[in-house]
Amino acid sequence: MINTMQADGVLERYAIGGAVGATFYLEPVATLDVDVFVEFHTEPGSQIASPEPIFKFLHDRGCPMENEHVVIAGWPVRFLPAGSPLLQEALAAAVEKDVDGTPARVFTAEHIAAVALETGRAKDKARVLQFIEADALDLERLQEILSRHGLGGDWQQFERQFLKQR
């Protein structure tokens, strides 16, 4: 459905992040919804990007709304704007994965970890630890991303808190 929206020009590009994105690299990470980061299509003559065409497209195809989610194939999907330089980079660097013959764009493991570190809640830090324990990160690449986006201090704090006694 989301690939169709992209092909129809409803959205510029998209990528799956969050817990479902992490599941592409780790063991299944329990979650209640799917986070899809998108670059919204800008209307001609307008500077404001609106998510309205996405909701209209999905509503017209019978996808119900549940609070801030749209339910697609039984899953609540949350469309989030790639509103920070880190998210924009993550979107541009996203990789295509095959899901039972359907292509899906997914954030790289390093970008998922960087976004989690930036978000900074306990469960986000737990996710970064999962990536490290699973040896699923290119740590050099992660460091580059973190320093590009001013997250070096957050990483040092994370290291002090969780990695020093390992």
Binding site: V20, T23, F24, Y25, L26, E27, P28, V29, A30, T31, L32, G74, W75, K97, D98, V99, D100, A134, A136
Partner: peptide, 16 residues
């Protein structure tokens, strides 16, 4: 972690 992604997504669905 090494399972095919489609299988992991089905597990996620059951977990949810």
């Amino acid at each position: 972690a090494a399972l095919p992604i489609a299988e992991k997504l089905r597990m996620l669905d059951a977990l949810r």
